[in-house]
Design a protein around this nucleic acid. Structure first.
Lengths: 247, 247
DNA sequence: AGAATTTGGTATGAACTCAGACCATAAATA
DNA sequence: TATTTATGGTCTGAGTTCATACCAAATTCT
């Protein structure tokens, strides 16, 4: 029989379906919390939210969250005390002291990293432009400046890394958009992974203060295009470095 | 006791933690497949990939996928036949014929929709610019033109909706970036929801062919900035309409 | 000092999901 | 026509995750 003519000829292959979840909820929790800590969302010495809250935020049962916490505890990232006023505090021994570089980077990993860099080049400049367009009032202005000062003042590589992440996350947060925040967080987390796998360039990357400053200025001056360009430049430079060093 | 000075003063509230998964894998599958069908990824009359493949693509066991398929079948979106050459074909009775508008839009829904529009204004223009920058070879060029022709030729509102989605998804696909594709898919899915809830404007929105054309031209001419602007304009106009009609 | 409150620690049964094997059907092929 | 093959349909036991209690410790308030 003659097949009915397909309404659409174009293929649009099914790349569009995305995995519905990353199995093992507790592993995902460990990952998110660990990166949040390493990105400086929860700085050294600070107390994490109570288990019940964290579980809610992560959309996970408390039982599952506790498994994750146990892992973090065992990894030496946090310590826990009981009772009111107790909780879980960040101890963060230097990031994965020597166990890093254990896992060799697979080709898929590499591809995913490149993908992340491409995505970043869209989302972070977009976020910067959006903030510049929204404008920043007193409170926001202070946050932005504080975040920038933190980066500028950082000396040690590890400290610089955290401050840098926090700077980018601050810009994302200023957009006020959940999706933008999530996207930037994800991108920064991947970036962090990459830098862990390529230790030697912590130093090389540190001279991007000018670019950070340019972004901040453009945002404060309410110049979206300039902010976008500046952030684009920043992303491009970082990406070039990383691509070059990816085996 | 004097609390140890926090290393960082800035708050960076924990909006950064995102739910680790949307419970009930099979519900998520239903959602993804249903939107994929309604967005025209699997056009009317086409055959879905075999269950085993779909399960793999969605990162889910076949058992779970089948539950989802059963739901789709029961909803009248697809029909299934056995044996070689069989499979599951899209029947798609007009989108949720009259059962729609059943759920009133909650305030959170509304907020999420606005968030999606904001995110869209970053990601879709960014994708367009990226494609323009990458350049489009013969194959890609053909796909893009075909997608555009489809939209331009569409007459009935429902058909226009699908073609429009496919047009935007095609651009995303041409970036070659998983993350970009996923972001645009998600945004288009939300857009689709909104349009279902606000039926009356199917017509109003239909005169955006000029803007589509402008985007396509800019991409083919390898003018990233122009492509971005054109897509931005398009997003802004659509968003303005939608925002106005959101109760 | 005693009560209330916040916080982590533990336990249990139900529901969901997985992986893999095997069955049934119908088209394609030899 | 007989065989192969691609596809959906079914079953089962193990592993996760959930929801919901309740217990234990330590701080704060009365």
């Amino acid at each position: 029989m003659t097949p009915a003519p397909e309404p659409f000829a174009t293929a649009l292959p099914a790349n569009l379906l995305r995995p519905v979840r990353g199995h093992h909820a507790f592993e995902a929790c460990v990952e998110q919390l660990a990166t949040a800590i390493r990105l400086g969302v929860y700085p050294l010495g600070s107390t994490l939210p109570p288990e019940r809250d964290l579980a809610a935020q992560l959309g996970v049962s408390r039982a599952t969250l506790r498994e994750a916490m146990a892992a973090l505890r065992q990894a030496g990232l946090v310590q826990t005390t009981r009772g009111r006023g107790g909780g879980t505090v960040v101890t963060l021994k230097p990031p994965t002291p020597s166990a890093r570089a254990a896992a060799r980077t697979t080709p898929e990993q590499r591809a995913d990293w490149l993908d992340s860099l491409a995505f970043r080049r869209i989302i972070e400049p977009g976020a910067a432009a959006m903030v510049a367009e929204l404008g920043v009032d007193g409170e926001a202005r202070a946050q932005l400046l504080a975040a920038h000062d933190e980066v500028a003042a950082a000396t040690k590589p590890a400290q610089y890394r955290q401050s840098d992440s926090r700077f980018h996350l601050t810009i994302a947060a200023l957009t006020g958009s959940h999706r933008v925040i999530e996207a930037v967080t994800s991108v920064q987390a991947t970036l962090h992974e990459m830098l862990l796998a390529i230790p030697q360039l912590d130093t090389n990357i540190a001279h991007s203060d000018d670019q950070h400053l340019a972004v901040v200025r453009a945002i404060l001056d309410a110049r979206p295009d300039r902010a976008r360009r500046a952030m684009e430049q920043h992303c491009d430079d970082t990406a070039a470095l990383l691509r070059g060093l990816l085996t």
